[in-house]
Structure formats: C-alpha cells, structure tokens
Design a protein around this nucleic acid. Structure first.
Lengths: 355, 355
DNA sequence: GATGTTCTTGTTATCGATACCATCTGAGTG
DNA sequence: CACTCAGATGGTATCGATAACAAGAACATC
C-alpha cells in the first residue's frame, strides 16, 4: 500500500505523534512504538526505516502518555534543603555520577529546611508516579513517610542516618560525628567549648551533631555549653556573627568553638582575629564537612570530613538497584574522618602544624 | 441512590483514581474532576463533600493523565551547569522566590558545562511538554534552539545576556563586566595583568569576561596577557593552582591577577601569600561575583558584584508571565557593580582600606 | 502437502484524567 | 402555569501512548 498522506507535519510547531510516523512509514503505530522503544519484534529493515522517519519528522514520544500507559514514570524526585552551602551540591554531584545515563529524569526541589514544603512536594511528586524519591535527611512529617510507604515508591534517605528508614538510607551518623568532635577537643585539653550554629530546628543534622558534641563533653563533666544561633543559612557571614556574639556574651570566654560547618568556622575565625585572639594559642576553631576552602588555607581548619560525593553516588546506586528490584542494604552509615588542621592545640607529643 | 461499594481502597497501596472518589461520593467523575480543580460548576456543599472524600481516600490526581488530557504539563525544566560554585545556587534561590506557589514543578538538571548533555536533556524534557524551560547561558547547540523554538515553549535564558534570545533572556553582559574590571585596573595603574580561569571552552561566560578584560587592556596598548587555565571547576583550589602556575611561569611577574571568581581569587591570594607577595603592595587580586566569603574577609577581595538572586527572581517572573501569555521584555541586561575591596592599589586621592 | 513453529505485524482495550455538549432542576417572570 | 434561563450534573469522545492477544507470513519437519 503506497504511502501518500505523509510528509505534512514539520510546519506549525505542533508536536508530532506516533501516528504521523506510522503514516509516514506505512506501518501501524504499534510497530512504531516497538521500534522506538527498541523492544524486539520488529525486523531490522523496518526498524531502521521507522527510526529514520521519526528523526526526519523530529518525532519525540510523549512522556505523559507513556507514563500513563505504563502506570509509572521515569522520574526520580529529589528533595534537598538547599544548595547554598556546598554540602548538597556535592551530594548531588555524587548522585549524578550514578544517575547519568540510567535513563531517568531528576525532578529537584529545595525545601529550605521547611518540613511543610517537603510534605507538599511529596504530595505533588507522588502524583507523577515517580520511579523513585530521594530525600535529604531522615526527619519528615508522618504524612511523608506514610505516603511514601503506602505508595511503595523506592525511597532513599541520605545525608543523615537512621537504622529504620522509610525504605533505604545512606548517610552518616551525625550524633556520632559530633561526639567524635567533642572527644577530640577533650583530648586536646579543651574544657570551655562554645557552639555556633543556625536557628534551632532548622538544620536537624547539625542539631544531632551538637547533641553528640554536648554528650561527649557531659561525660567529662562539662555541661551548659554556651551556644550562639544565627538566623541565616550556614554562610561565612553567619559564622562570623555567631562567633562575635559568643565572644561578647559568654564568660569565661570559650577556649574552643565548634561550628556547624567549615564555612561558618572560617567566618568565626575571622571574627576571632578581629578581636586579636590568636588561633590556636588563644582559642581553638573547629568546623565540619571538610569543604573546599580548607585546601587553600595556610592553616587549615580542624574539621571532620564527610564523604559527600561518595554518599551521593552510593545512595543513588542503591536506589537504582531498588528500582530495578534488586535487594540492597537497607541502611548504610558511612565513616567520617577527623582532620586536626592547624586551628587546634596539638596533642601532647604531636608536632604542631607549621604556619 | 445510596452509596454502597465505596470505602474499599485504603489497603494494597494501589493508587486511588478519580472513579473511586466518585463512587464514594455518589457523583460522576466529571463532578469530582471539577471539584478537585476548583473550577466553577459545582455546588459548595457537594464540593466540600467531595474534597473530604478525596482526602479520606488519600486520592491524588494522576498528573500524567492530566497532562496528557490538557496537552501540556505544569513542569518547568531548568538546566544549569553546576551547583558547585555558588553562582547558580544563588540564581536558583532567586527563581524559587518567584516560582514558589506558582503551581509548577521544577525539573532540574546539571550539565557540567557540557553542550551535548544539554542537548540530550532538552530532547527528553520536551517529551514532557513542559510549561517552560530555563537555560543557564545563551550558547547552545543549534538543535536546542531549533527544538525550543519550533515547540514554542516559553524559554528563559539567564546568567548570560544576548539581545537575540531564543525567547526571553535576563542576564548580565559578561563582556562588558570584564571590560569594567579591566578599566578599573588600568585606572589604578596596573599594566601587567594575568588571567586565571578554568579550561578554555568550559565556562563560556568567563571567556566573555576575559575577552572584555583583554579588550580593555588592548585599548591601552597592553596585549599578550598571560593566562593560566586549570582543569577543575571554579574552586578555591583551582584558583590557588592557577595563581601558582602564573607566578612561576610568567616573566615579568604580573602586577595584578584577574580571577574567574571570588573563590578562585581567594585561593590565588593564598598562593601569593605563600610566595611572600603582599597584597596589594606587591600584587593586586581581583575576583568576580561578590560571593559570601567577602563579607568575612578583613581585607575583602576586589570584585564585581553580580545580582544573582535578583536575576533569578526577575527571570522566573518574566518566564511565568510568558507562560501566562503576558508580554514581557525580550531581553534584560542587569547592571553589575565594581567593589574595590582591599586587594588593589587605591586610586590617587582615594583613602586606602584599613587592614 | 499438512501441520506446527517462529517471527513479524496489526487490532482492540486501557491507562486516568479533561473537554464538550446534553440534560436536568429549580427559581424567577409575565 | 407555561416558559425562560442559569446553574448543577452527567455521558462520551479524546489525549498519545502501551499491553495483550490475534493473525498472517515464512520456513521447517515428517
């Protein structure tokens, strides 16, 4: 049967449909569908012909129709608090390296640490019947966990760690990491620590670290650790302001400051220097995360390095496995590493870092 | 007609459909559809009843079906190079403030400055029939422009500026900004500048700035400006390595370094200090963007501040307007501002910044 | 040459919503 | 009281694909 009514299209910008390709090739739409998806059951010659026609007509299959028909989409929803600190950007980078070429689209939202926004996002996301969902953190509104569980969507919780995730989890134990920070400071003889973070309840991972930190000091008899909370995101400036506040208000003046992040720590370091406090002689500085700035500081910040890229990569890999029905570890706690840097007193017997 | 066969659902996790709600309420699916969308034509009492039932059954309308029926989705696709520097995170933050509560889902991808990845992403994105698309930059493969134009999708190009965008554009003129940097340095008497960036061809906006920078110096007779290119993203470390290379290799030693970004500039500053070069006495340092670190440095970096949040906000607002069929300016070039900071020689007659 | 396999291709129902048009109801009108 | 008319509601086709099954063609086997 000769083709005839093909080769219209191509003007008007209206999207071409599978039907157009079928007409142009003189086959049924099912054959086109099979050819486009690369499933077997189409002769090589015909497949080539169809693909060529599809290209010529710049035909793109409608994902909405496809997702409706197969009852799920190839979307992976990702909800992270923010990209303004480098943490989640690194994690995302790690996830990309696993997600790329896996044939999924990533739908990202940033919640700004707001639980209600996360909840609303999960609702809207579920309406797309995504292949999987990734959440930053492990603290969610009950509705979020319930929806995700009852919809049986493969879900990765990351950055934070819990032994009882919604589905699977790859993260670090922030409480333990904070405890590690505390014990390292104790070992170095610090007894009057101060904590600098952001407004309580915003960054729950940081709260866990601080809790672990306090816990470590409590077991050495140090309680009532002064804290300074800044109502900004974890920026250089927030660290400076927080340190300033703490130095002014708390007496006796702390002998070491534990910051929410390296960026805040750097800001705090600057505040200390502005008050002619030398580091590490007069005051110790400790950050968290092991961010890039540390690589260029002549006296690097003492910090705890979190394996962010690795975490993103492994988490995404595990999620993909789940999506494909492969079993994986339900929860993984990645190790962190203490780096003494040059902003703390050295241990007895340890040679001090040169300036 | 009494209800009877309702209140099954609720187990099995299978998603509820509009039909279930209709059955549970004893109305037709059309009425449910109208009630859920909030369009008129449903009595208040019935609407309330339906909404309650929908909630009880935790019914969520299937977005795929909806998008198929209305022939477009409420997705806005966003393609940005990376979140690893703070630039696009800020821009995104600005866009959020306009996009939030506008009823759109954002589908984000990072291309890592790779044109082919962007092209592939646009193809996949178009298959969703998105409400709009946002691209970082104005340089794209011809296929991208062609697809977007022929599909008549509202498209915002941002960060960079062009008077002839695919659809609309809100950005800054990087060539001019680089020229501004150059002329400021010239005015301060610098005549042996050096440029530190990333591998050529990666960050096209930076290339435009460098071009403008060279142009400004050329008109003062200074040509053959030495450059150092690092094969990393615009990180602190890259800046340090780039500066090191330049200081070692180029003779005579430059009297000022122009960096791709403030982060790189800070890294470079550190490299200079490591070689006992004082700033600004021995060498000038100039960054770009006006990033957060500048707020805590006791001697802030000379820089050119880009209005990133504002840009994101305005761009997203204009795009929303386009989507809703309102006419907007096709292209907007936002102004940038030079900040002398403390890493340059002061102008004759200008009081130097205190340390 | 009849029968069965395998491979390719087509037909029809379906996914879960919306658009369009038809119908029904009750209030207002002369 | 018949007659509009507006508002509320329902029936059915449709959006663009895929799944499941049916059917036709080509080839092998006995």
């Amino acid at each position: 049967m000769p083709i005839q009514k093909a080769q219209k299209q191509r003007k008007s910008g209206r999207a071409g449909k599978i039907e157009d390709v079928a007409a142009a090739t003189g086959v049924s739409i099912m054959t086109v569908s099979r050819a486009m998806r690369g499933v077997e059951g189409v002769s090589e010659s015909k497949r080539a012909e169809i693909l060529k026609a599809a290209k010529r007509l710049s035909y793109v299959p409608n994902s909405n129709a496809r997702s409706l028909a197969v009852a799920h989409s190839d979307l992976i929803g990702i909800s992270l608090p923010t990209f303004l600190d480098d943490v989640f950007a690194d994690i995302l980078e790690g996830m990309r390296s696993a997600l790329d070429n896996a044939g999924f689209e990533t739908v990202i939202d940033t919640t700004g640490y707001c639980e209600r926004r996360e909840e609303a996002w999960v609702d809207r996301m579920l309406a797309w019947h995504p292949a999987g969902v990734i959440l930053g953190g492990v603290h969610h509104s009950p509705a979020v966990s319930a929806s995700l569980k009852s919809a049986r969507i493969p879900t990765l919780q990351t950055w934070d760690y819990t032994p009882d995730p919604i589905d699977i989890c790859v993260g670090i134990d922030h409480f333990a990491a904070g405890g590690l920070a505390g014990s390292q400071l104790l070992e170095r003889g610090y007894r009057r620590p101060g904590i600098v973070g952001v407004t309580r309840g915003r960054d729950l991972r940081a709260e866990a670290r601080f809790a672990g930190f306090r816990d470590a000091f409590a077991s050495a008899g140090v309680t009532d650790i002064p804290e300074s909370r800044i109502d900004k995101h974890a920026s250089f400036e927030a660290g400076m302001l927080g340190a300033q506040a703490l130095l002014e208000q708390s007496r006796p003046v702390p002998d070491v400051l534990f910051f929410l992040s390296d960026h805040m720590a750097f800001g705090g370091l600057s505040a200390c220097e502005a008050q002619d406090l030398r580091t590490p002689e007069d005051i110790g500085i400790m950050g968290f995360n092991g961010l890039g700035i540390n690589t260029v500081l002549r006296r690097p910040l003492a910090t705890i390095v979190s394996p962010r890229k690795q975490m993103g990569h492994l988490g995404a890999r595990n999620l993909l496995a789940r999506i494909h029905g492969v079993r994986t570890e339900r929860h993984v706690a990645l190790p962190v590493e203490f780096q003494p840097g040059g902003t703390l007193r050295s241990l007895p017997g340890e040679s001090p870092v040169h300036d």
